Simulated assay, not measured.
Amino acid sequence: MAINYALPLRIIQGVFAIIVLGLTAYVANWWGGHWHQFSPSEVNFLIFAAVWTLLALAYLILAPARFPTAAHKYGILAAEAVTMLFWFGGFIALAAFLSDRICFGGVCSAAKAATAFAAFEWLFFAGSTLMAALHCWRTRNTGVTGHDPKVEMQQGV
């Protein structure tokens, strides 16, 4: 029996993206209200990464389950890899931004928490990208263009 790891992993990735989205939206709102200027680009990039992730997860969940022709193994690998790179760049940029400034209070705690959750989100996407890359590697000469059936979302019985 194949272990279906995909749906729990996707749920965790979605929950973490929503958490980061909420935390960074709070930081961006505070920054605009207190400094009367645009929020830092590092915060804005993590907002983008969270929204991108929600769109990518919609593809990564729905394509294999409902639209198998759109679930090409390289398309899934590309979506995973790009999302992983966005999270890596986002959490590194915000961590570097926070490291050289005096930071205290609730907004600082929210920014640090967003950085930590973004780092874990990067780890989750690094793992799922590795699994997608392994699938592409193992099926490179077989003519298989679709997704790995072990990664497919199960239909209700």
Rank of each mutant, 00 (worst) to 15 (best):
G75K: 09
W52F: 04
A17R: 01
G14I: 07
F124R: 06
K73P: 09
C108F: 09
K73E: 03
S39F: 14
T83H: 12
P68F: 15
F16V: 03
T24C: 08
F91T: 02
T83Y: 08
M131S: 11
I92K: 07
N4E: 09
E152F: 01
I11L: 14
G14Y: 07
A78I: 01
L123M: 13
W122F: 15
Y59F: 14
V151N: 10
I92Q: 02
L130M: 07
A17E: 00
A126N: 11
A2N: 06
C103G: 00
L21R: 00
T145K: 14
C108Q: 11
F67G: 08
H36N: 15
F104E: 14
A49G: 01
S41D: 07
A63M: 00
A58V: 12
H72A: 14
L85S: 09
N141I: 02
S41T: 07
A6I: 02
A58D: 06
L7S: 14
A95D: 11
F45G: 11
A81K: 04
L55W: 06
A126H: 07
M1I: 13
P8Y: 12
L23W: 01
A111I: 05
M1T: 13
P64Q: 01
A114P: 02
A116M: 12
G22V: 04
V157G: 14
Q154H: 09
M1P: 11
G156P: 03
L94W: 03
I19S: 13
L46F: 09
I47M: 03
T129K: 01
H72T: 13
A6S: 10
I61P: 08
A118S: 15
P149N: 02
A28V: 11
G105L: 08
S99Q: 10
F120S: 05
P40W: 03
A70R: 06
G89R: 12
A2I: 03
S41Y: 12
Q155W: 08
V43K: 05
R140E: 07
T145C: 03
A71P: 05
F120W: 05
G32I: 04
G14C: 11
L46N: 09
V82I: 04
S109C: 04
L57F: 09
I47Q: 03
D148R: 10
G32D: 11
Q155E: 13
A132Q: 03
A110C: 06
L77F: 12
I76R: 03
A58F: 11
I3Y: 10
I76Y: 04
E152G: 03
G106F: 11
F45W: 12
A49E: 05
L134S: 07
R66P: 00
A63I: 00
W31M: 09
A95I: 07
P40T: 08
G127V: 11
T24N: 09
N29Q: 15
P64V: 04
G14N: 13
N4T: 05
Q13T: 13
F67N: 14
T69F: 07
L46Q: 07
E152A: 09
L9C: 10
A116I: 12
L134D: 04
V51H: 02
W30R: 10
A96S: 11
E80H: 03
F97D: 10
F67M: 15
I18A: 14
K150P: 04
Q155S: 10
H34P: 01
G106R: 10
A49R: 06
L123A: 15
A118C: 03
N29P: 10
I11G: 08
F117H: 01
